[in-house]
Design a protein around this nucleic acid. Structure first.
Lengths: 133, 133
DNA sequence: GACTAATATGCGTACATGAGCATATGTGTA
DNA sequence: TACACATATGCTCATGTACGCATATTAGTC
C-alpha cells in the first residue's frame, strides 16, 4: 500500500486551512463550467445515455460548433468523456458525483422557491422536503 | 396538509423533462455565483463563524467594496444571509447544502488529481477514496 | 486518391462581469 | 447637528467568453 492511507482530504473547502495553492481556482473552474445554461442542457441530455455531438446539438437546440466547444469544456474538468466511434464523437458522463451535485442544487433551489411561495400562500409547498411525509 | 405531498421534484436535472421554464437558468446562476475564487474564499471563511464585511475583506485579502459586492451575490442566491448589528453587517452561511456541495466537488477534484498523479506514480494515492481502507 | 459525413477550430463581435476608485448611505455617539 | 466608523453603490476600464460564421481536420467509403 502507499504511504498515504488516511481518508483525509487535501482539498477541503470546509476545513480551515486545507487549501493548497490553486485549489480554490480548481474548484471555481469546476463551478464555472457548470454555470452555463447551454452546458447544463448538455449534462441534462447526457444523463440517460451516451450521445454524439450532432444528436446533442439538435436535442439542446444549439449549433454544432458551440455544442462541440461546450462538450470540450465539460471534458476539460472531467465531467464528461469522449469516445471515438467511426466518424463521430460519443460523449458521456464520466464523473458520478455530478448526479448528486445536481440533486443537491436542485433540491436547494426548490426549498428556496417553496419558502418564497410560502410567504404569499402558506398552503403551498413544492414537495421539497422529502423527510417525514 | 397541502394538496401536494409527494416528495417528487419539480426541478430535477437528472430526470428527462422535469425542467420548468427558467429552471436551467436558476441552476446556472447558482453555479455562477460559486465560480469566483473571491467568493469561494468568502464561503470558506464563513464556514466557521458569522463575520463582518471588514473582517472578511481582511481575511480573504480583498477590498471592502469588492467584498461587499461578492457577499451580495452570494446572498442573492441564498447561500449566505445578512444580519445588521449596529453599524456593521454580519454575514453567515444560510444554505446548509453548501457544505455537502463543497465536499462533493472537492472530493471529485481530489479523485481526479489522484488519477492523474497515478499515471506517473501508481504508488501515490491522495487518500480520496474513503471507502474500504 | 476523391468524396462525404461528422467534428473541431480560427476569427471577429457582443456582452457580462470583476476590480479599483471615489463617494453615498447608514448607524451609533458626543 | 456634527462626527466617526462600517457598509453599500455609481462609475469606468479591462478581461473573459459565448456566439455565429467560415473553414480545417478526421474517419470512413467508393
Amino acid at each position: 500500500m502507499s504511504r498515504v492511507n488516511t481518508p483525509q482530504r487535501f482539498i477541503n473547502l470546509r476545513q480551515a486551512g486545507s487549501l493548497p495553492d490553486g485549489a480554490i481556482e480548481l474548484i471555481a473552474r469546476r463551478f464555472a463550467v457548470l454555470s452555463e445554461p447551454a452546458r447544463l442542457r448538455l449534462v441534462h441530455a447526457l444523463f440517460d445515455a451516451e450521445k454524439s455531438v450532432n444528436a446533442l446539438a439538435e436535442e439542446t437546440g444549439s449549433s454544432q460548433p458551440n455544442t462541440s466547444r461546450h462538450l470540450q469544456a465539460l471534458a476539460s474538468v472531467g465531467v464528461v468523456s469522449r469516445r471515438r466511434e467511426g466518424p463521430q464523437s460519443l460523449y458521456s458522463i464520466c464523473d458520478p458525483s455530478i448526479y448528486k451535485l445536481c440533486d443537491l442544487v436542485c433540491g436547494s433551489i426548490e426549498k428556496q422557491l417553496a419558502r418564497q411561495v410560502g410567504v404569499f400562500n402558506p398552503d403551498v409547498r413544492l414537495g421539497a422536503q422529502p423527510r417525514r411525509p
